[in-house]
Simulated scan of single mutants.
Amino acid sequence: MKKRKGGSGGASWMDTYGDMVTLLLCFFVLLYSMSSIDQQKWVQLVQSFNPDAVHEATEMKGNAGQLADPTGGPDGGSGQQTQEEIDTTIEQLFIDLQTYVAQQGAAENISVTKGDGYVFISFNDAVFFDGDSYVLRTDGEEILNEVGTIIGKARSSIDELRILGHTAQGDPSKPNNPTVDRFLASDRATVVLVYLQELNILDPARMISMGYGQFRPVADNASSEGRAKNRRVELIVTGLDVTSTLGDGIEQYYTERGTESPVSAETRTGTAAIG
């Protein structure tokens, strides 16, 4: 009987198959390295397998430096806004504030103006404080309730809300005591900021108080009317600029100090906006 020849034919096709699989693996790895993952789609995929999965929003650089997160704008809006949408919101804020002042007949004590990307609101001392005082008056609280609610409607488009405190020079021939002057101006601005912050109209990280003292008058201190105009608190509402390569006000602060923000917008606010 003829002896069957031995051989390793099986091993030959296994070698070829192994080489092909290796090449396919390299091909797909190459494709993957050239691709980018859509974060939002990835989250949807994960949640489709596990509906209870919790996605923690992370801040990332995007849109020419503007802070963004998967939930939307800086205060958790429905999506990234265009500059045109932001400008429209700031314009509407200006109109709403003007309407409020006209309805209240308060044009003598409250003025509202608009510049390029910001709204400027000025209150003289009769609105919020008595002379030489930083205790907020009851009628001043009522005005802040209304003005704060109007500002809160535009929160998703606001970069910063700055509160400026001023004093008048009591004796036109003699400057105020620097310590008293500076603290009074700063205290007035801070009292207004704290009241607005407790209304929860805006991310507190976007609210800033500043005291200018007597050094930026808008009227002559020689008359009581002029001093009343100089003893004032002002609000400057600045809209976001998504075209800025420096980012928004919060991002610029951390850039200037050479670090990144350790917390997200949600962590800073902790509570929802007013209705």
Rank of each mutant, 00 (worst) to 15 (best):
V237E: 06
K229A: 09
E251S: 12
R231N: 14
D248G: 08
V263T: 15
S264H: 03
D241V: 04
Y254H: 12
I250G: 03
Y254W: 15
G247A: 07
Y253C: 03
E234G: 10
D241R: 05
L240F: 09
L235R: 04
T243E: 14
D248Q: 07
K229C: 01
R232C: 04
E260V: 13
I236S: 14
K229F: 01
T255K: 10
E260L: 13
G258A: 02
P262L: 04
L240R: 11
Y254G: 03
K229T: 00
V233Y: 02
V233W: 02
E260I: 11
G258K: 07
T245L: 12
I236V: 15
G249A: 10
L246G: 02
T243D: 15
S244D: 15
R257D: 09
S244F: 07
E251D: 15
G258R: 03
G249V: 06
G249M: 02
I250L: 12
T245R: 11
E234P: 04
V233R: 01
A265M: 07
E256S: 12
T238A: 04
R257M: 12
G258F: 03
I250Y: 08
E266Q: 13
T245N: 14
E234K: 00
R231Q: 12
Y253L: 14
T255H: 08
N230T: 05
V242L: 13
P262D: 09
V233D: 06
S264N: 11
G258I: 01
E266A: 12
G247V: 03
I236G: 01
I236T: 14
R231C: 03
S264K: 03
I250F: 06
T243S: 11
E256R: 11
D241C: 09
G239C: 10
G239P: 11
E266I: 00
T255S: 12
T259L: 08
P262T: 08
I250Q: 13
K229I: 00
V263G: 00
D241M: 05
R231E: 14
S244P: 05
D241L: 08
N230H: 00
G239T: 05
P262S: 05
S264V: 08
L246K: 14
G239E: 04
T259D: 13
P262G: 09
S264G: 15
E256G: 09
E256Q: 09
S244L: 09
V237W: 04
E251N: 12
G249E: 03
V263Y: 13
T243P: 06
G258Q: 04
A265C: 06
P262A: 06
E256I: 01
G258S: 04
S264I: 00
T238I: 10
E251I: 10
Y254A: 04
K229L: 12
R257P: 01
